[in-house]
Design a protein around this nucleic acid. Sequence first.
DNA 1: ACGCTGGGCTAAATCGATGTAGCGTTTTTT
DNA 2: AAAAAACGCTACATCGATTTAGCCCAGCGT
Lengths: 339, 339
Amino acid sequence: MKGISIKDIAKQAGVSPTTVSFVLNGKAKEKRISEQVSKKIQKIAARLKYKPNQLARGLRTGKTKTIGLIVEDIANNFFASLAKVVEDEADKYGYKVLYGSTEDNTEKAKGLLEVLKYRQVDGYIITPTKNLDKEIELLQSASKPLVLMDRYFPHINSSYVVLNNYKGAYDATTHLIAQGYKKIAIVTIASEQTQMKDRLDGFVAALKEHKIPFNKSLAKRLAFDLDRESFNTEIKKFLTTVKDLDAVFFATNYLGIAGIESIRSLGWEIGKEIGLVGFDDHDLFRLHSPSITCVSQPIASIGKNIVEVLMNELNHPGSPSRQVVLAPELVVRASSSRT
Amino acid sequence: MKGISIKDIAKQAGVSPTTVSFVLNGKAKEKRISEQVSKKIQKIAARLKYKPNQLARGLRTGKTKTIGLIVEDIANNFFASLAKVVEDEADKYGYKVLYGSTEDNTEKAKGLLEVLKYRQVDGYIITPTKNLDKEIELLQSASKPLVLMDRYFPHINSSYVVLNNYKGAYDATTHLIAQGYKKIAIVTIASEQTQMKDRLDGFVAALKEHKIPFNKSLAKRLAFDLDRESFNTEIKKFLTTVKDLDAVFFATNYLGIAGIESIRSLGWEIGKEIGLVGFDDHDLFRLHSPSITCVSQPIASIGKNIVEVLMNELNHPGSPSRQVVLAPELVVRASSSRT
DNA sequence: ACGCTGGGCTAAATCGATGTAGCGTTTTTT
DNA sequence: AAAAAACGCTACATCGATTTAGCCCAGCGT
């Protein structure tokens, strides 16, 4: 089980390994290899089921046909679904995926980048953590193809594929207002990163637009790394301190889940006593009683765009970076209806 | 951004690359390199932040420090959570993970194995599909370290880490009986693979044990590759044709979810009119109204065991294969209680 | 007949790390 | 004092594919 090498083919065909390499890399014409020899080599390669040794090839060319995918948490439904799309799309271009989860921890992210670097991945798909900008710039100055996802750094000119988070939050909030909710709060993650900032901004903008006063007491910003227990405790504490609260927008999928749990343990009736909108769709949101309204991300499209943009960077180095902002869809369900 | 090589270190230290290699691989003693030189090299390597080029090393040694993980569907919560554990555990041993989803399609699985093979992964973690036994045996005869997960082939002597599916189903069914349900059905996947066969067997055994007659009309076996719509249609059709049905056991997480949806669209009251037990825990099961009883898999333990067993195969080639069967936990909730 | 061009192919260097075989010097053994 | 062993280190081949430089031969023009 050693594996067929280019030498084996060369031997069988009675030519040099060089010739075989040329032919198998489609350079037969360019390198003026005769049709005869070319055909013969192709045939032998096919018969022996030759697969180039990616290590040797990578060592020589510096290309490994591998991309690194760094997500926040592969166990999170959103990232897992996305990872699958990315994997499938990358496969179409002959690339494999090495992945890792940051847990939104910059040190872990740096570690992952380090590993991916000395594994010589050809390109990076990164869900950046807060202070990862320096590393991103390092990668850029090394001309490494990369695409940020889910969030980006406004001060860095890189490619990225993100949701229009502002619109997502704006639509969700506007919807709650239209449904007649008066005092609307947001529960989000304490983060200055774009995805969270935009969601908060969209929320605030929708309130402003409808002349509803906003003040900080309407926004609860929780630390990302709390456990479920603490999320629940904090959320309950918050919800009970806002006076006359009648609706709340949870800015991430896991906050939405914790939110549902919290509200229920408070004994409030979702929809009637308190309107609720979550982020990212989920089986739980669809099947909960009452069902939960949410801002849904077009996962398939996000994944396709990510890979497309990355492939562009890989195949046309130096071409301008691309920014893709995709539209969310508000999935209206029972949790935001008083009737 | 070329990267520091062993040569750079050799030059700076005024020694040969060979010496550097020996020192950096901890063979200084063995190869009788003086303390002085050894220290010096270590220092320089640290200062230059030398990271060995894994491609070159892999090409030479045949080891890539990479393992292939083949799951059924990375977008499925169970596999995603497991993947994360596997990634973390593998990392502890210095291994990275290349992954892929089979969709339970043997052709896709073969394709993945092919890719992993010529990427020269050092070991395989495989959730096998139905007819993958030949390929598994091929890997074995090539002495490739491998661990099967979630299911295995009884006629192949390989390492595996699986749940005690029989006990999971047996406990779930016994629980339903103890709760006073009389006519209990099972909805499962039409598959001869161990995980499904054991779940069905456990179900039947529990009935037998309590003198409850079992016949085929109590078991609905659905094709894996149906879409959600079809699952719902089929499940509804089945549930309505079983006479006096008062409880049902869904043998996978996605069937459980489809089951909940179906039963609700039939307007039956879960728990009271119909008892329900699912497989694998899920946020949805925990937060559904009523909450859903399920057979829960110890994901962290499964992941740890998988990596441990694989590392054993990696580090002690030829040592006997290991079979790990872990106990499920029945999480009792409201969906299986009539009171 | 001589140089020139271009067609068809290959030798050899290269990527970076590893590991065997072995070289020159000093120390020990007999 | 000669032989053997120990010591400390290095030259070189190797893994498999790629790629540069260039060899040899045939046909061309003059």
